[in-house]
Amino acid sequence: MDTDEHLIREASPEDLGAVVASVSGLFAEDGARHDPHADPSWPEREGSEYYARLISSPDGLVLLALTGQRPVGHLVGRLNGPDPLRPPVRGAELESMRVAPQARGSGAGSELMRRFLAWAAERGVNETRVRAFAANTGAQRFYQRWGFAHTHVDLARPPY
């Protein structure tokens, strides 16, 4: 476990390589393990363009966690558009988050979450959401410690 202090900062266009590498790690660890249809090559193929748009968008947040100069994690969040079915909701989604295995338990994830929730509050958000794979109980426990609660259950029928 890393015990160094973490720097959490908004990613810049120069950080795209580090962001894509961290997202690739998440896809390999989480998506590819828990979703047989996930494409683990997506971050390398399309991630730079996707995250560059989010970095430049006022409705997007891309954070990097660094120990010293070494990237050890990321968080991607975005504001949600108005929902005509739920007009009083101003929402934000935590789209993607990862802390590298060697930095887990060091507080980097909590620092990323603090920054995301502060960013959302500054924008008048009154509901934040995150999705986690049902099999990823560690992620679910982390999010529950931050006040997230189960609100929906997605059911999928695999092909036979």
Results as ranks from 00 to 15, higher is better:
44 E>C: 00
45 R>Y: 05
46 E>Q: 14
47 G>P: 02
51 Y>T: 09
52 A>C: 01
53 R>I: 00
55 I>H: 00
55 I>G: 11
56 S>C: 15
57 S>M: 00
57 S>E: 00
60 G>P: 09
65 A>H: 01
65 A>G: 05
65 A>I: 00
66 L>A: 14
66 L>P: 08
66 L>G: 06
67 T>D: 13
67 T>M: 01
67 T>P: 00
69 Q>R: 13
69 Q>P: 06
71 P>Y: 09
72 V>N: 06
74 H>L: 12
74 H>R: 09
76 V>M: 02
78 R>G: 15
78 R>S: 14
80 N>W: 04
80 N>L: 15
81 G>Q: 07
81 G>T: 11
83 D>S: 08
83 D>M: 01
84 P>D: 05
85 L>S: 14
87 P>R: 13
87 P>C: 11
87 P>V: 11
92 A>N: 07
93 E>Y: 15
93 E>W: 15
95 E>A: 15
96 S>R: 09
97 M>T: 10
97 M>F: 06
98 R>G: 04
99 V>N: 09
99 V>I: 08
99 V>G: 10
99 V>M: 09
100 A>Q: 14
100 A>Y: 14
101 P>L: 14
101 P>Q: 13
101 P>R: 15
101 P>V: 01
101 P>C: 06
104 R>C: 09
105 G>E: 07
108 A>P: 08
109 G>Y: 07
113 M>S: 02
114 R>A: 05
115 R>F: 03
115 R>E: 12
115 R>I: 02
115 R>V: 14
117 L>H: 13
119 W>G: 03
119 W>K: 10
120 A>M: 07
121 A>I: 02
124 G>S: 05
125 V>N: 01
126 N>E: 06
128 T>G: 11
128 T>Y: 05
128 T>V: 15
128 T>R: 07
129 R>E: 09
130 V>K: 11
131 R>C: 08
132 A>F: 01
132 A>L: 00
134 A>H: 09
137 T>I: 09
138 G>T: 03
138 G>K: 06
138 G>W: 01
138 G>S: 09
139 A>K: 07
140 Q>F: 05
140 Q>N: 06
142 F>T: 01
